[in-house]
Amino acid sequence: MDAIYTSLFEPIGADGMIGILLILNGLKVTLIVTFFAMILGALLGIIITYCKTSGKWYLKLPADIYVGIIRGTPVVIQLVILYFVILASFDIDKVTAAIIAFGINSGAYISEIIRSGIQAVDKGQMEAARSLGLSHNQSMRHIILPQAIKNILPALGNEFIMLLKETAVIGFIGGVDLMRAGEIIRSRTFEDMVPLFTCALIYLILTYSFTLILGRFEKRLKQSD
């Protein structure tokens, strides 16, 4: 009990904030970064998918390189390089930098999700649409995408969960997210268990409740088949 009190409800360090507030602020940062990175990632994912399926080499090549680099390197390195090297000369706050880094990272994965969602639609659908005289774009819009979205949405939910957990490395650029808040408490109170378990529990609650929502949602998508 003492440990809980010391880590969560006592003023910690020079700023005098109590532990629980530190954690809630961290949680806020985690959620903000995840949410906006997801939006940025979705936009980038759509653009990348378009480039990749355009059939034009000058669009496809950069898109392939982008996805290759992002998927081939750890997100921590991408985050640190972006903040300390690429954005070094810009006056940009850590949360924004994190949103950009995780958005760029997520975009690569989301483009793969969209691509495989489109590829999972039977190729006879495109042929039937084209045989009626629809253009490629009309076929995509009216026939392929409405079916692909059913494959894409559940996978996007998983990507959101992955992203939420991956943002735990924001501390590497000095941002105070949920994980980093726990670390601050740990280093100032010398209590290890309570702050770490508190953080882990919050992550677990977030991902688990999101998984539940996703499950319901998927069930409803299936019903409409």
């Binding site: 039977d122 006879g124 659908q125 042929e127 039937a128 649409a129 045989s131 009626l132 026939i143």
Partner: peptide, 10 residues
């Protein structure tokens, strides 16, 4: 017009 082996209805 074309009719396919596997129907390909939407």
């Amino acid at each position: 017009g074309m009719v396919f082996q596997h129907f390909n209805l939407f």
